[in-house]
Design a protein around this nucleic acid. Structure first.
Lengths: 262, 262
DNA sequence: GAGTGGTCTAGACCACTGT
DNA sequence: CAGTGGTCTAGACCACTCC
C-alpha cells in the first residue's frame, strides 16, 4: 500500500530525473496537483515537502514551485594554506593587493565585502579541549563575514580563536579596527614570531541551524559544510583554530595530497 | 505576528539548547503539545518537522519524539593516501592483514563486511568530462559497500571508475570475484605498471537522495558528505576516480597539509 | 484581481510500541 | 490495550507576485 504523498512525490521526482522537468522549470501548481491526483491540499503539500527536503525543488511564495538549479560556485582548496604562508612574508604592497578569499574565488578585493568583530572570552570546555588549553584560558575570538558585493548574504561564517597570551606581544592583534589586516592572520602571527608548520582541516556535514539558514540565506533542503581548521606552529603548538560554516550547495572543498615517489 | 508553529518550535529548541531537554530525552507527546499550546494537530506536527529538519530531534513511531544524540564516529583522513600507497608494495602477507577502511576505523578485518560489484560501461558525459576522456570511453565501474558486522546499514557508498584500456593488461582487475584484493586498488594498478603521484579530494554536502537515505539508513534531518577522489599517476593522467557518499552525522574527514618551512 | 504558495482548524482512522 | 506518531480529508483565510 503506497502512501498517497509518496506516489505524488515519486511521480514528480521521476519527471525531474528524466529531464522532462528541467532546472528552472515550474512544477504544476498545488491546485493542479490536487485536481490531477484527486488528493487533498495537505497531502499534495507533503509530497512537495519531501522533494524540497531532497533539495530537488524550491518553492517561491506567490510565484510557483520550481526545479532547483544545482550550483557549486566557491571552491576552497588546501593549496591556499601554502599560498597564505608565502603571502605572510611578502612585502606590504603585495600583501595589500589580495586576500585568501580572493585567491579562492579569483575575484578582486573590490568585489568582496568583509566584516570583522573581535572580543575576548574565556575558553569554554569544547573549545579548550580542541585547542589543548585549560578551560577558562583567555582567548581572542574573532568572527568574520564575507560576501559578494552584489549579494545580500555572506557565503561563509567564520569564528576564529587565538590564545591571548600568545598574541599579546602585538597589541594591534587585539584591535578589530585594524581589519582587514594586510597579509591576514598569518602575517599577524609572524609579528609575534610564530611560523605555521601544518594545518589540519576537519570536515563534517549537517543541516543548518535556523541562525545559519537565516544568515547565509539558505533555502530549506540545503546542508552546510562545517570546517574546523587547526593551525600548528613549528613547535607543534596549536596557535589558531577556526570554525567555518559554508553553504553545501555552493561550496566545493578541494584537497590535494602529494605522495612520495617510489 | 509570530507564526504559531514557529513559536512552538522556538520554545522546544530553546529547551534543548539550554540543556533542559538532554540528548536521548523524550519530548512531550503530540497530544500534550496540542493541549499545552492550544493549537491543532497539524500545527504541532509542523513545529516538530522544523526541529527534525534541523537534526535536533528524532521521531520514533509508536514510542515518542526524542532529542537526537550527536555522533561522529568514522574518521577518514588524507594520511590514508600515503599509507595506501606504501601498502601497495608491501609483501602479500602484510597486504592481506588490513585494508584502508580498517586503517581509518582502527578495526580488524573481521569487524567489517565488504561487498563489491563490477560492470563495464561507456563513460557518460559527466564522468567523461571529470576524468578527461571522451564520452563513450570503455570504463570499469566498481561499486563497494562497507558496513560494520554488527550493523545493518553500510557507512559508505563507493562507486569507482577505471579506464578499461589502462587496466586490461591484468584480466583479474576485471573480475569482481577477486575482491577483496589484497593491497587494494593501488596494488591492482601496480600490476599494470601504474604509480600514483597525487590525489585530489573534492568535498561537498547536500541532503541525501531517497536511495541514499534508504541504503545508509539515514533518518530525516541528516546530510551526506559527497567526496570525489581523483587519482593522478606519475604521468599526470587520471587513472581512477571514486565517488563516495558518507553519512554527514557520523563521518569526520581530516585533511592535514604540511607547509614549507621558512 | 487572479493565481500562487503558507498557515491553520477539527477532526478521522491507521500503524507501531510497550505492557 | 493504551499511548504514541503517521496519514489524510475538506475546507478557511492569509501573504506574496505579477499583470
Amino acid at each position: 500500500m503506497a502512501k498517497a504523498y509518496e506516489k505524488i512525490a515519486d511521480e514528480l521526482r521521476a519527471q525531474i530525473r528524466a529531464g522532462q522537468l528541467e532546472p528552472g522549470d515550474r512544477l504544476p501548481s498545488e491546485a493542479d496537483l490536487i485536481k490531477s491526483s484527486g488528493r487533498s491540499g495537505p497531502t499534495v503539500q507533503q509530497a512537495l515537502r519531501v522533494l524540497q527536503a531532497e533539495g530537488l525543488i524550491e518553492k517561491q511564495h506567490g510565484r510557483g514551485t520550481f526545479v532547483r538549479r544545482p550550483r557549486t560556485l566557491v571552491q576552497r582548496t588546501n593549496m591556499r594554506h601554502q599560498w597564505e604562508k608565502d603571502r605572510a612574508r611578502a612585502p606590504e604592497q603585495k600583501r595589500l593587493e589580495t586576500g585568501s578569499t580572493e585567491h579562492d574565488t579569483g575575484l578582486g578585493v573590490n568585489d568582496l565585502v568583509f566584516h570583522a568583530a573581535y572580543r575576548e572570552i574565556e575558553a569554554p570546555k569544547e573549545i579548550a579541549a580542541a585547542m589543548g588549553v585549560d578551560e577558562g584560558t583567555a582567548l581572542v575570538e574573532r568572527t568574520y563575514r564575507t560576501r559578494y558585493n552584489a549579494e545580500r548574504n555572506p557565503f561563509s561564517l567564520v569564528t576564529s580563536h587565538l590564545i591571548r597570551d600568545v598574541v599579546k606581544g602585538n597589541p594591534d592583534l587585539l584591535d578589530e579596527t585594524k581589519e582587514p589586516w594586510p597579509g591576514g592572520t598569518w602575517n599577524q602571527l609572524l609579528t609575534v614570531g610564530i611560523e605555521i608548520d601544518r594545518i589540519e582541516d576537519r570536515v563534517t556535514a549537517r543541516p543548518p541551524t535556523v541562525e545559519e539558514a537565516e544568515e547565509l540565506g539558505l533555502p530549506p533542503g540545503t546542508s552546510v559544510l562545517v570546517l574546523r581548521k587547526t593551525s600548528y606552529d613549528t613547535d607543534n603548538r596549536i596557535v589558531e583554530m577556526s570554525d567555518v560554516t559554508l553553504p553545501g550547495d555552493r561550496t566545493e572543498m578541494l584537497f590535494t595530497t602529494h605522495l612520495e615517489r617510489w
